[in-house]
Amino acid sequence: MSTSALEVVSAKLPDLITERYEDRTGGAWAVVRREGIREVVSLLKNDPELDFKLFLSMDAVDRLNLPENDPRFEVVYLLRSLKRGEVVRLKVRASEDSPEIPSIAGVFQGANWWERFVWDFYGVRFVGHPDLRRMLLYEEFVGHPLRKDYALRDRQPLIPERPIKDIFRGPGTSGVA
């Protein structure tokens, strides 16, 4: 395969891809404009030449403690094409004030749960998602625990915990920040 999938995409939708780069291990990445993610993903899926039919996964990175942290959130999409034997890695950036990204659950059914996961743990909203509930945590939970400013040992029990002496163990600082 001579031209990589992302080259094809950026030739077809030049306005929607803002940046392309390769990571140190040779993985091809593209940064997609927030409003264009649905279009880029549908092109990747439905173009017979590209054929990225397998939805691998999605997640987000909170760049708060990294040198370049504006915009703060990066949502990562991973798709695989069995025909081309290629994985594409897409990124959409979202700022802290309005962490909203169009949902791609209409394009890939598999994105439904992953978007709920990202909403649950990072608080990035997916506009147009059919049922944006928390994925693993309970609805009463306050905050989004994988954000870097969420304390490691912050506890939110649904029922009051019994007063037992806390044993300080496990990773990180022992409750004293």
Binding site: K53, L54, F55, L56, S57, F108, Q109, G110
Partner: peptide, 10 residues
Amino acid sequence: AEDALDFGFT
């Protein structure tokens, strides 16, 4: 097969 890929079955 189509649905399986769409969901991300492997």
